[in-house]
Design a protein around this nucleic acid. Structure first.
Lengths: 138, 138
DNA sequence: ATACTTATTGAAAATGATTTTCAATTTCAA
DNA sequence: TTGAAATTGAAAATCATTTTCAATAAGTAT
């Protein structure tokens, strides 16, 4: 089997393990911030120089399907990906360096119940994201 | 002066009021859901048939600068715009028909303080968005 | 090890969204 | 009414992403 759980998951879902995939997986896993496809491409190519951008797109698509990575929405754009949270966690992003942290412990039940009553909407899901400065950038 | 506050605002910021801008402004104001540039174009062209898509992009850009409209982020995409909220309000979106409602009254101070302490981040801003079904779609 | 089926590859072309360029037109202040 | 400057739509350019395709490589069966 593989050393890496993401590669395992890919393999279990009928994918073959290739150098291109290894390079993309490793690049995303090693990053503290969300990366765009081109950023993944540039970083991964330092180790695997013949990598194609198309393979980056395809691998990111697979990883997103398997919920191993998730898209990060920001005012500047929504093309970047980061290793996915486990369970119910939300993102906290540094507006200076982009460093990402997850947190849990939001309790929005009371709010959601109140909004549901006021608006008549049946609420199914929520997005919460915090922006600020990481310790190093303050 | 103009009847419409958005047109007033545009004018106050050095813009000229044209039929193209009137058509875009009216279209966005009359929509209960977020619209993409192409959707605005299609709707607005029913009243103003020579409108160009480029003018839609340009007018939306101006309206966003003036905080009269805001971009709406959704799993399916982030190209749509809606009339902006006034003050501190968040979006509630119907996942079936797209109808949007704003709500206020989130109190995240306790959560934010706690996350700030745990992570060391200095928190400056937050995004909160609810998804569900509007009364008509339930 | 070997052969073979099938997924994967990178390059190039195609697509789709958005931006820029430009000459003609229109707004609005003088 | 006039004229400077903003705005227009069309076409071209750009940028991100997807599709197509023939060559290659992974992994299963032999």
């Amino acid at each position: 089997m593989n050393v890496d759980p993401w590669l395992d998951q890919l393999q279990e879902n009928g994918c073959r393990i290739t150098d291109a995939r290894r390079a993309v997986v490793e690049t995303v896993q090693n990053s503290m911030r969300a990366l765009t496809p081109v950023e993944v491409f540039d970083r991964a190519r330092k180790k695997y120089s013949t990598l194609g951008l198309v393979s980056v797109y395809r691998t990111l698509e697979k990883l997103e399907e398997l919920h191993l990575i998730q898209r990060v929405h920001q005012p500047q754009g929504c093309q970047a990906f980061i290793a996915a949270s486990h369970g119910h966690e939300h993102l906290l992003l540094c507006q200076n360096c982009g460093q990402a942290a997850f947190f849990e412990g939001d309790n929005l039940d009371a709010l959601i119940k109140s909004i549901s009553k006021k608006t008549g909407y049946q609420i199914q899901d929520h997005w919460l994201q915090l922006f600020g400065l990481c310790p190093a950038c303050q």
